[in-house]
Each structure stands twice: as structure tokens, then as C-alpha cells.
Design a protein around this nucleic acid. Structure first.
Lengths: 208, 208
DNA sequence: AAAAAAATCCCGGAAAACAGGGGTTTTCTT
DNA sequence: AAGAAAACCCCTGTTTTCCGGGATTTTTTT
């Protein structure tokens, strides 16, 4: 019996997943959680799943960070990411941080079952569109999602609100030079050369 | 018997919805479709539902446009929007274009059933978080999602890619002045005063 | 406690975007 | 076929961002 935990904040989706997984008698969904905190607590206290099906966009933490944390403590648990997005950097970041599978939410039910069985065999499972997304990108310049600092995020949000450097500096009680430094660093981390692109990418990666 | 059609591109979600709706014996899901085109065709040819449960983000058309189109041809059909987003302009645009309900995807199953029954009684149904989102905004300056032209969308995308006005002008074989005009119009339509904000909002409204 | 990372501050010149006016020609819609 | 909307073009001055270097002080992590 393969013990599976579902981490997903949409009850309807959870319902659908459970329903699909019920059709495979070797799979047992032993629990479901709507956010990162509760699943971490459950792992601490009682649950010992073989596989975690995890939505990438949770209300409290990003699936990327949650994956990192879980794999650090429980390296045997296989994690399969569930996502609506097929952006290459998202996929790459998840896999790099320990996910064994990546399935888009528009996948059919049997893809999920296949994914679970594949990762239980110790292999990696990517759904078709995910493979496409990775293939089309140059293997060498695979981009991960940049790690941005608290302050950078704060400034990014203010930029997104339409504030100018001067206004941001005033609001945060720091010098305009500092704001410009953060701006510069953000552009560098995202590999672009204007803030508009930074904001667009950040929105895409749900960093805003 | 209330005849319901589900329009949603995630099979797992469809599965979940059907499962939930099965618990109410007065509701009959007579069909489901994964995109706008197929549901329009079905309405043309055979289906006569009382209610359509519609995902706002479909692969081919926006739920907003699809709602407009369906209500124009079949004014008796009640449409309930299903969405992950609680952005005020999205909600407002959907309701303005004829939707009778708006339910967030993180809602519980019984909210959906309640929504269906409410709209069948001729009333409007908004889930709790949706009501919150509308309440917090000033009733007078409720913003709808701007209608942008083909050209503006094109330019918006190029801006998002990080191109400068000059580069865009070159690529589209038009003058830089024209590009600046479009930029200006975009800012005006979105009610902001720099392109970065435009891009952020466009991303939010899934216009990019 | 040492090393690394983050946050802060500084400058000047070049490039781009914004603001706020003007107008003409296509292309839809009615 | 008329009117409206979209797409196009033009100008000048001002503001803001970008790029290219710096450097110092806090935090955080190891």
C-alpha cells in the first residue's frame, strides 16, 4: 500500500484527487492539508507518507520552500508537485529542491497515478507538457527562480504599486541610492535590464 | 431537476465538482467542457442547461468574454464564475457582463451548491471572500478590467519582454512616437502612471 | 568568532520613460 | 455611408531609470 498525503488548498481539487486515487487499490490517501504549516506539523506528530502530492501555490509558503524543508528532514518522502504553471524556472526550482515529479493540473487523472507509481520506483516523473517546457529551454541556461531578500521583495512590491525611487526611499526612510542598489540587484538576479521585466517575472513566479 | 454544465479545463477539478454536486439530488450535471469553443458549440447544438459553472481562466477565451457571449444568446442561463482570484476588477467585470454568482475555488463544496440554488431563485450569489473584496473597495470607484486593443496588447507583451520603446518601434515597423502613444493609452486605461504598474496589473488580470 | 550575505549609502553621465499637448488615416460597427 | 473607435504620427521639456563603478555597516549563517 502506497501511503499518500495531499497538500492542496482547494477543497474541490482535493475531492477530485481523492476520487481519482480511490480507483487505484494500491494507493491510500492517509491525509490532506490545506497549507504548509499544518502538513509540517502532521509530519512531525504522526504521519509517515511515502508520497506527498503538493500544490506549488499554497497560501502560506511556496511549494519550493516547503519541498526544501520536507526533504531536509525526511529525505525518503517522495514529493510530486502539482501546478497550473509550466514555466521552466518553476519546474527547475522544484526539481532542484528535491521534488521527484511535476504534474500540471490540467493533466488527466491517470497521469497522477502513473506519477505516483513512477516515483515509488525511484524514478522521476514529469508530465508531457512539463517535459516540453524543459526540452525547449537550453539545457545549460536553465534558470532557477532567483532567491530574493526580504527587503528586495518589499521594494519590488512598491515598484509594482507604481512608486518611483524617490517615493520608495521616503516611505522606507532610506536613501534613494539604497533603493537604486536594490533595483540593480533585482535586475541582476532576474537577468534582465529593466524593472518592468522584473515585475513581470516576479508576477509569473508568484513572488509578488 | 436543475441542469448544470461545468466549464473547466482541469479534469481533476471537474471530477471534484461532479462528486460534490452528486450529493444534491436536485442537481444534474449534464455535461462538462474544457474550453470556451466547445461549450458554445454544445449550447448551439444540444445542451439547454439552467446553470453554467464557469472557470474564469480558460485556455482559449477569458471567462469574461465567454460570459458576455453566452448571456447575449441565451439570457436565461445563469452563470456562476469559479475562480482562484479575488481581485475586485475581475469580480466586477464578471458580474457586469452577466454572471449571477462568483465563487472562489478555495470554497467548500456546499458553497457551490448554495450558489446554484441561490441563482436559481433569481438572486445573486457571492462567496464570503468575494463579498469582502467588493466591500473593501469604494463602491463608486469600482474598477472594471480595461478593454485593450490588439495593438495595445501586442505592445504590452513586448514591454513585458523588456524591450524599450525604440526596440518595439523597430520590431513593429512603426515610429517610436506611436509606441509612446500606446504606452500612454495603456497607462490611462489602467489608471496608473508608469508602465511597470500596467504590466503588473495586466499580469494579475491574466491579460499578458 | 569568522565568514558570508544583506542592507545601507555614494556619485555622475547616458538613456529611457513620462507628461501633455497636437493631428491624420484606417478599420470597425451600425 | 456615417460615425466611432482604433491605430497611427509628431513635438518639447522634465523626470526617472539605468549603468558603471564605488564603500561601510549590520545581520545571518556556519
Amino acid at each position: 500500500m502506497i501511503k499518500v498525503i495531499v497538500v492542496e488548498d482547494h477543497p474541490i481539487m482535493v475531492e477530485g484527487l481523492k476520487n481519482i486515487l480511490r480507483t487505484d487499490l494500491t494507493i491510500d490517501v492517509i491525509g490532506d492539508y490545506g497549507n504548509g504549516k499544518s502538513v509540517l506539523q502532521a509530519l512531525e506528530e504522526k504521519e509517515h507518507p511515502d508520497v506527498i502530492l503538493m500544490d506549488v501555490n499554497l497560501p502560506d509558503v511556496s511549494g519550493i520552500n516547503l519541498t526544501t524543508e520536507i526533504k531536509k528532514k525526511y529525505e525518503d518522502i517522495r514529493i510530486i508537485a502539482l501546478s497550473v504553471h509550466d514555466e521552466q524556472p518553476v519546474i527547475h526550482s522544484m526539481l532542484q529542491n528535491g521534488a521527484s515529479g511535476y504534474v500540471l493540473k490540467n493533466a488527466l487523472g491517470n497521469e497522477i497515478i502513473k506519477a505516483i507509481n513512477t516515483v515509488m520506483d525511484g524514478e522521476e516523473y514529469l508530465c508531457t507538457s512539463t517535459r516540453e517546457a524543459l526540452k525547449s529551454a537550453d539545457q545549460d541556461l536553465l534558470k532557477a527562480i532567483p532567491r530574493i531578500t526580504r527587503r528586495e521583495k518589499e521594494i519590488l512590491q512598491l515598484i509594482g504599486k507604481g512608486l518611483t525611487t524617490i517615493q520608495i526611499a521616503e516611505q522606507l526612510f532610506i536613501s534613494t541610492h539604497t533603493v537604486e542598489s536594490h533595483r540593480k540587484n533585482l535586475m541582476e538576479k532576474f537577468g534582465v535590464n529593466n524593472t518592468t521585466s522584473v515585475v513581470k517575472l516576479a508576477a509569473e513566479y508568484k513572488l509578488l
